[in-house]
């Protein structure tokens, strides 16, 4: 595993919202084809880490390299065009757009995205709801739409922020299968997740965050022997 070069290399990343200093030097990497999960309690900076990678915070410093290319000075639209796509925690489905418009909103930034047929194979529900208003979908359908629309763009690195939050177990399973299928198709995924049971079924590696820093990392193989430590970190 170590010989695969990092697709995403984050080094001493700091981030601010206005006056609040949220990230205090986050360092980790994600290799091409991996599913990596950020774990941690509420408010430790997991969502801010994803937003900082995407350039969606007021101010950031440090280094975020995508495939060796530094992106820390780029605006978020330029970062998106470099090949990163985000599925935000609040899902960000647009109420004034129907499902089709929501799905087609993110422009294709590079070749190699999934075509609509393959997207509908992953999310059959969406095909029947194309002309519904975006926010009239159920929570699970909205989550699927939020993931589906970033698969078209050709981005190789997907940032998924708590895709299982507030969803029924059967939907969570479907999203888990989808992430597995995406991994099999060569996507690299950085996941933020509170639902540790869910993360354990799909992730290759885990980073644990506390107070705006990475404090530990584990591979899936090390998971069982470190359960006690993890429970301490997560307070479960």
């Amino acid at each position: 595993m170590a010989e695969t070069p990092a697709l995403l290399a984050v080094d001493t990343l700091q981030a601010w919202y206005g006056e609040s200093h949220i990230l205090h030097g986050v360092t980790f990497d994600v290799r091409a084809g991996e599913v990596v999960t950020l774990l941690g309690r509420n408010g430790v900076g997991k969502t801010t880490t994803l937003k900082s990678i995407m350039g969606m915070v007021d101010q950031r410093s440090g280094s975020v390299r995508l495939d060796g290319r530094e992106t820390i000075r780029l605006s978020s639209d330029a970062i998106a065009r470099a090949g990163i796509a985000i599925c935000p925690e609040e899902r960000g489905i647009f109420a004034s757009l129907d499902v089709r418009e929501n799905l087609l909103l993110p422009p294709q930034v590079r070749p190699g995205g999934l075509d609509l047929d393959r997207i509908f194979a992953l999310f059959p529900n969406l095909r029947e709801r194309l002309s519904s208003q975006g926010t009239k979908l159920s929570g699970g359908e909205q989550q699927m739409l939020a993931i589906a629309r970033i698969l078209r763009t050709g981005a190789r690195l997907l940032l998924l922020d708590e895709p299982t939050e507030g969803l029924a177990p059967v939907i969570i399973q479907q999203i888990g299968r989808t992430i597995g299928a995406l991994k099999a198709q060569g996507f690299t995924i950085l996941l933020v997740e509170q639902n540790f049971q869910f993360a354990a079924t799909i992730a290759d590696r885990y980073y644990v965050m506390e107070h705006g820093r990475i404090v530990d990392q584990l591979s899936n193989a090390e998971l069982k022997t470190n359960m006690g430590k993890l429970h301490d970190y997560l307070g479960v």
Partner: peptide
Amino acid sequence: ENPALVRAFG
């Protein structure tokens, strides 16, 4: 509705 997210889509 959400300029920051639209921008983050490129």
